[in-house]
């Protein structure tokens, strides 16, 4: 469902992403790992059509994002890093706006979609609260709700559990896991156990390049007996 071929992005003289290639199939949950500044967010921004790649393409359901970005954006749900949202709107107003842009214009369809997203992400207690007054974890959930709202076939989540309490982390993980059979999911994270808990594939990138692309079991088998963070360190040692 997602095919990424040779993506490159350069900022000034710095190659943030340097020929990243991978595919994600329906039912896959891909864990996207890498040290700070490795190029995870930049890769995601290119897949979702926010940044134009300097070279390479990303295809979603066979549609090239550089050719028809709007069609790709219809199929995607995207949670950007640090979950931006319009601070002066209430949760309900904000999700209502997303629903309208996503094509749910009739009042009842809009309401159904908003309610569904609010229930999935446990936002009911704060639905009438303005987003600027929410705590970090709740803001993160609003971003997650926004990404799920139209029940997309492809989810791109940049650090979805960042800032959540342990209960909510588990909640979000099981939510992603339960939805995943019909979707292709890419999620980036710094929590290595998260990969073990929900991902069936792992990609590690370091300095803009893919250094590992395999199942979590295969990753462990690289250094039998070692902890995941030790394997991570070995693979990304060039990147500090």
């Amino acid at each position: 469902m997602i095919e990424v071929k040779g993506l490159v992005k350069t900022y000034g003289t710095k190659r943030a992403v340097d020929g990243v290639t991978f595919t994600v199939k329906r039912g896959d949950i891909l864990g996207f790992l890498g040290p700070n500044g490795a190029g995870k967010s930049t890769t995601m921004k290119m897949i979702t059509g926010f940044l134009r790649p300097d070279a390479g393409t990303a295809m979603v359901d066979g549609i090239d994002v550089t050719v028809d970005p709007v069609a790709v954006k219809q199929k995607l749900g995207y949670l950007p890093e640090s979950a931006p949202a319009y601070p002066e709107m209430t949760v309900e107003e904000f999700l209502g706006f997303i629903a309208e842009v996503r094509g749910f214009r009739a009042a009842d369809a809009k309401r159904a979609q908003v309610d569904r997203a609010i229930n999935l992400t446990h936002l009911a207690p704060v639905r009438k609260q303005s987003i600027e007054t929410l705590s970090k974890g709740f803001k993160q959930r609003v971003g997650f709700a926004q990404a799920l709202l139209h029940d997309p076939g492809v989810l791109v989540l940049d650090e979805p559990t960042d800032g959540l309490d342990p209960n909510q982390k588990n909640e979000v993980r099981s939510l992603i896991k339960n939805m995943a059979s019909a979707k292709a999911v890419i999620l980036s994270t710094h929590i290595l156990e998260e990969v073990d808990a929900i991902c069936n594939r792992v990609i590690i990138i370091s300095r803009g390049k893919v250094v590992a692309d395999e199942t979590p079991e295969r990753l462990r088998a690289r250094q039998p007996g070692a902890r995941l963070d030790e394997i991570f360190r070995t693979l990304t040692h060039g990147d500090i």
């Binding site: 921004k45 926010f50 954006k73 931006p84 949202a85 996503r102």
Partner: peptide
Amino acid sequence: SGTVELLFTLPI
């Protein structure tokens, strides 16, 4: 505020 990223990853 970073909401451009949200706006321009919506289908518009």
